[in-house]
Design a protein around this nucleic acid. Structure first.
Length: 281
DNA sequence: AGCAGCTCCTGTACGC
DNA sequence: TGCGTACAGGAGCTGC
């Protein structure tokens, strides 16, 4: 599922592929995906506009148009933005049945928004904070300002919270989802149910470093496509970080550190993969 | 405040 | 074979 590394990969792909292109037409097959404004307004405000640039905030893609408007895309669980022209190899794996939005540019190439589970959302706003969930987002863990000191400050906002819940909440640190929260905790030897105030200095330092390390490596490998999951980059290619996952989806596999079998427990409705020996409560 | 449980949605896997 | 059910889970929501 798209978390920070997957969204970052798509952002970089879009920057290479659709920057400076002019939108000629939009086909909307499922209008529920468009949350703001009305469908009519959305279409008229996008038509004939040029793509000035692409950015990312948390798990949101922000596409700047040559007007005051920005196109904001959240991929939800299974959303994809595919621009298949440089590389047609894996296009066939993507079911066109779920092509909900198709942007056609003046050069007749197309950008396709495909989303099996339809949890994705698209907004057109003049100010990105008009998307309420963006206005609430926390710190960007890959920005240079995300120092250990800042991390401690953010942790202190929620001392009584369980660490995994905290990592998953976008209002504190933005970009981590279930896969990377699991990985970061395992690599830091911290049980997901540990209360923030119980973490010692070394654990906090470790966690901060692992957040950066895991995300940087995952971005390098263009994200994670676990097993037969949906995620693809803008070329339709799978991410390669799945091979580097040490704990997520590794149930029954031996822990790389101690050999104990990786277990799965449900925490707040989500699967949490842990090594019961390395991650003690 | 925080968490359980539900919602959105489809595809896949599994038990009978 | 086929049907019912559980699960996957980002995020917003209700209600305890």
């Amino acid at each position: 599922m798209p978390e920070l590394p997957e969204v970052e990969t798509i952002k970089i792909g879009l920057q290479k592929k659709i920057k400076d292109k002019q939108i000629k037409d939009i086909i909307v097959n499922i209008c529920k995906i468009i949350k703001k404004p009305s469908l009519e307004e959305f279409i008229t405000k996008i038509k004939d506009k040029k793509i000035k640039g692409i950015d990312r905030r948390g798990k949101y893609i922000i596409i700047y148009l040559d007007s005051e408007d920005k196109l904001v895309v959240h991929l939800g669980m299974t959303g994809l933005l595919i621009y298949p022209y440089d590389n047609k190899i894996t296009e066939k794996e993507i079911n066109p049945k779920h092509n909900h939005l198709i942007f056609t540019f003046t050069d007749n190439t197309q950008l396709v928004f495909n989303d099996v589970r339809r949890f994705g959302k698209i907004f057109l706003v003049s100010n990105i904070d008009d998307v309420e969930s963006i206005a609430k987002l926390g710190v960007e863990p890959l920005e240079s300002y995300f120092t250990e000191e800042i991390f401690i400050q953010v942790l202190n906002k929620k001392k009584n919270c369980k660490i995994k819940s905290f990592l998953m909440k976008q209002e504190f640190i933005t970009g981590l989802g279930n896969i990377y929260a699991n990985e970061v905790l395992y690599r830091s030897n911290i049980h997901p149910l540990r209360i923030i105030s119980s973490l010692n200095k070394k654990e906090v330092r470790n966690l901060h470093q692992q957040i950066k390390l895991v995300l940087v490596e995952a971005v390098k490998l263009r994200g994670s496509t676990v097993a037969d999951e949906a995620y693809r980059d803008t070329d339709g290619e799978k991410g390669k970080f799945a091979e580097k996952l040490q704990v997520y989806a590794q149930k029954g596999e031996p822990c790389l550190k101690c050999g104990r079998s990786i277990e799965v427990v449900r925490i707040e409705g989500r699967s949490s993969f842990i090594c019961p020996k390395c991650q003690k409560l």
